[in-house]
């Protein structure tokens, strides 16, 4: 008897085991608070069977047939080019593109103004707070807000994802800028250059590879999330999914759209990864990109 209690005591002395015990008890309490029971899971499996029966096989007419109800309306002659999948995916890509470009244009100056090695501490701290505030809300919530403000359509999606991109990209960027070596910045400071020139001509070019790679990463991210914001009406392929979900419950078409989206997202991730890998590699800098970024490098 005392042996058992000794074992229990030794057992409880281990921090890992105590933590595990506390977490298990908490999980059970939380689950019961949420009224999660095993019978619900049983319901799910029967629902799942219904859905799979209705969704399978996927109905790829979404790739071939014209969506006369597309918004903005599609004026192309060929039917498949006006199909929900093509129109929706194109919109998602366009929204992601605009949001990434706008996000980059807005976030780069903000990032430079919030890098502690480039900006005065008070300014850096307050702009960081602003960037953090933009990141608090996920892009889906921003989309809800902008759908209310500017109405249903791609504009709401662009604005929503721009907000999130600025917050997220800004953080990545000021971290990259803070990582540049101290010496070039000291050379600039010794020359007596103003802070914005130190940032623009010394820090940003030095960090150009990471900045470009982050921008591509943000584009990938925006393509993935651009599919979600459509569900609340902010344009893109998600909007077309929503159209089939409610009230028609055409799960086979939704599944086809999901497959199309999946394939496109994977393709974009792969291409983007290839390109980014070239930036991350140290040597040598691709002149093509450099000229895009810094047009006066020809001395």
């Amino acid at each position: 008897m005392s042996d058992t209690s000794r074992v229990v005591q030794i057992f409880l002395k281990r921090p890992m085991i105590r933590v595990a015990l506390v977490l298990s008890v908490l999980s059970v309490l939380v689950a019961s608070h949420l009224r999660i029971t095993l019978s619900r899971l049983g319901d799910a499996s029967s629902n799942l069977r219904v859905i799979t029966q209705e969704a399978w096989p996927p109905d790829f007419s979404v790739v071939t047939d014209r969506a006369s109800w597309a918004y903005p309306p599609c004026e192309l002659q060929t039917d498949w080019m006006c199909s929900p999948a093509v129109v929706g995916m194109t919109q998602t890509l366009e929204i992601a593109f605009l949001a990434t470009i706008l996000g980059m244009v807005l976030s780069l100056p903000l990032a430079a103004a919030s890098a502690t090695n480039l900006a005065p501490p008070l300014m850096a701290q307050s702009i960081r707070q602003l960037l953090a505030a933009l990141r608090v809300l996920p892009s889906l919530i921003w989309a809800l807000i902008f759908v209310i403000l500017v109405g249903i359509g791609p504009l709401a999606g662009v604005l929503a994802m721009t907000m999130y991109s600025v917050g997220y990209l800004g953080k990545l960027q000021y971290e990259a800028l803070e990582g540049v070596s101290r010496e070039p910045l000291e050379v600039a400071r010794t020359m007596g250059l103003p802070r914005w020139q130190v940032a623009r001509f010394f820090a940003i070019p030095e960090a150009a590879n990471s900045l470009l790679s982050q921008m591509l990463f943000m584009f990938e991210y925006n393509v993935r999330h651009g599919s979600v914001v459509g569900l609340v009406g902010a344009g893109g392929i998600g909007w077309y999914m929503q159209y089939y979900l409610e009230p028609f419950k055409l799960y086979d078409r939704v599944l086809a759209l999901i497959i199309v989206m999946y394939v496109v997202v994977i393709a974009i991730d792969q291409v983007s990864l290839r390109i980014r890998r070239r930036f991350i590699e140290d040597e040598p800098m691709r002149p093509k990109w450099k000229q895009v970024f810094l047009p006066w490098t020809d001395g």
Binding site: S181, E183, P184, L185, E186, V187, T190, M191, G192, F202, P205, E206, A208, N209, P284, M285, K290, L294, W296, T297, D298, G299
Partner: peptide, 19 residues
């Protein structure tokens, strides 16, 4: 009026000589 040549030179990496 003052130029600095730091120990590790402080060149801007991945940029050209001209830049």
């Amino acid at each position: 009026e003052v130029g600095l040549i730091p120990q590790r030179l402080g060149l801007i990496q991945h940029q050209t000589v001209g830049y």
